[in-house]
Simulated assay, not measured.
Amino acid sequence: MSVLVINCNHWIGYHIVNTLLNHDYLVEGIESEIEHDDLSMFFGRNSSFSFYNKEEMKRYDTCICVGDYEHMETIHADRIIMINPQKSYRKLNPDSITTLLASHLFGEWMPMTEKGYYRNQEFIAFQSNEFIENAIYIEDFSERLIHCLQSGNLPSNIEVKSEHSNGKESKENGDSIYICSSLQLEQRMTALQKQYQLIKEKNK
Rank of each mutant, 00 (worst) to 15 (best):
V5R: 08
N9E: 02
W11L: 02
N18P: 01
T19A: 03
T19F: 01
L21V: 03
H23C: 03
L26D: 06
E33M: 09
D37C: 06
D38Y: 15
L39H: 11
F42K: 14
R45A: 04
S47A: 11
F49W: 10
N53K: 12
M57V: 09
C63N: 09
I64K: 12
Y69R: 00
H71N: 10
T74K: 15
D78P: 04
D78F: 12
I80V: 14
M82K: 15
I83T: 10
N84L: 05
Q86G: 08
S88R: 14
Y89D: 08
K91S: 07
I97E: 05
T98Y: 02
T99F: 00
L100G: 14
S103F: 13
S103W: 11
W109G: 00
K115T: 03
N120W: 07
I124W: 11
Q127H: 03
E133G: 03
E133H: 06
D140P: 06
F141L: 05
R144A: 08
I146D: 03
H147Y: 10
S151T: 15
N153M: 04
L154M: 14
P155M: 12
E159N: 13
E159K: 13
K161R: 13
S162W: 11
E163A: 11
H164K: 15
S165Q: 05
S165C: 13
N166I: 05
G167C: 09
K168G: 01
S170G: 04
K171T: 03
K171C: 05
G174D: 09
I177Q: 00
I179T: 10
S182R: 11
S182N: 11
S182G: 05
E186M: 07
R188E: 09
M189I: 14
A191K: 07
L192N: 00
K194R: 15
Y196K: 02
Q197I: 05
I199F: 15
I199G: 14
I199L: 15
E201Y: 15
K204G: 08
